[in-house]
Design a binder for these strands. Sequence first.
RNA 1: CGGGGCGUAGUAUACUGGUAGUACAACUGCUUUGGGAGCAGUUAGACCGAGUUCGAUUCUCGGCGCCCCGACCA
Length: 421
Amino acid sequence: MRQSQLFTKTRKEAPSDEVSKNAQLLIRAGYVHKEMAGVYAFLPLGLRVLNKTIGIIREEMNAIGGQELSLTALQDPEVWKKSGRWSDEAIDVWFKTHLKSGSELGLGTTHEEPLTDLMRNHIASYKDLPKYVYQFQTKFRNELRAKSGIMRSREFIMKDLYSFSRSEEEFRKFYEACAEAYIKIFDRVGLGAKTYRTFASGGSFSKFSDEFQTVCEAGEDTIYIHEGRKLAVNKEVYNDEALSELGLRKEDLREEKAIEVGNIFPLGTRFSDALGLTYKNEAGEAVPVVMGSYGIGPARLMGTVVESLADDKGIVWPQAIAPFAVHLVQLGDDAEVQKEAQEMYREMTGEGIEVLWDDRDARAGEKFADSDLIGIPLRVVVSQKSLAEGKFECVERHSGRTVHHTLSELIGQLTSHKSSL
RNA sequence: CGGGGCGUAGUAUACUGGUAGUACAACUGCUUUGGGAGCAGUUAGACCGAGUUCGAUUCUCGGCGCCCCGACCA
């Protein structure tokens, strides 16, 4: 895409009311717009990153047998009353409203109840199980205090998967498969090295759950890491009982701040009991379905990537979720440079390489500064200098490493890199 | 929800009970062209309401909004 056509603009300064690094950089670079406290709109660049993040999660969920659907944001209180979660004591972040007729309505904070209820129409026999169902869907949570930029917001897309299994054993198998899929997801978005499966409280669902925590100063959680076993314990369950259950000794653990980028919960039969989701086993007996729920917030993940990979010049995107693969920076607008840039843009996009072409009438300093801020993995400079040389300056955003390539070398490298992913 | 802070141009910031200043952005012109250029000019601003006052952006009260600490976070 031509940068001159992009409607968003970069800014030198972040709004004074944004303190968190992720929001400051994402706003300055034109990825997101703050609509109000805890509510962010995704602009063209931001949406590209969000969609790529979603794409990676989708691939990994499909790989473990997930089937995608899309449930509704508007919620009928009836199913929530059955599980006891319509009350503000059970869920204190409800946005509640009502129909013209006067009857109450909720905006979905999560979807255990409606999905469990829906599945009653489709699950009747042990032959219908197991089933794994997920969605990317907007959740509304009336947080008392939104904070940390796009990391804790009141309206956000969440990937929520729900597993429906015949037995605890069958459930556990999927639970572990999903944990592995999560690890792959965090690897693919560049957070693998800093992300730990973390033993945590199960909240109102269960005694324990597993969180995936990415070590980061901006994190809201405190965790205790066992580096050797690549796992951690959340501070909320950091006690002798939990430690002995996990076979961990305090002296082997390291305290860190971390961001919860994903979580998985055993639900048991809590919701299938409440809503009457049972199946007939081989003996013809009605048995409650064993459930689990599995969440990842793609926007939070995106924010975490910004927080942990950005440098003092701006955002640094990993290849996998960058809005574009190449930032083609054209310096000067004389006819030859213009023509060359046009040709490069045409050839690269023809090869399926996503290119943001900075064709704006701006000075070099401004273009480089913007390029650093936007954080596309590879910058390719076209100028009189490169024309004279016959090779183009290619700078890796994350390392600052500069190499010089001809166009065909560059395309060769980018396309082979792509296929190796 | 408890505590604290803040609301001035598109953005970031000053000063002030009596004409609100600066920088960046934007617009015009000239110069410049590999790290957010220079000169000249132009446009543009006090969250809302009530009160005190001759006069309020400034003081008081209320509302709304925003931020921070804590609590909460299925």
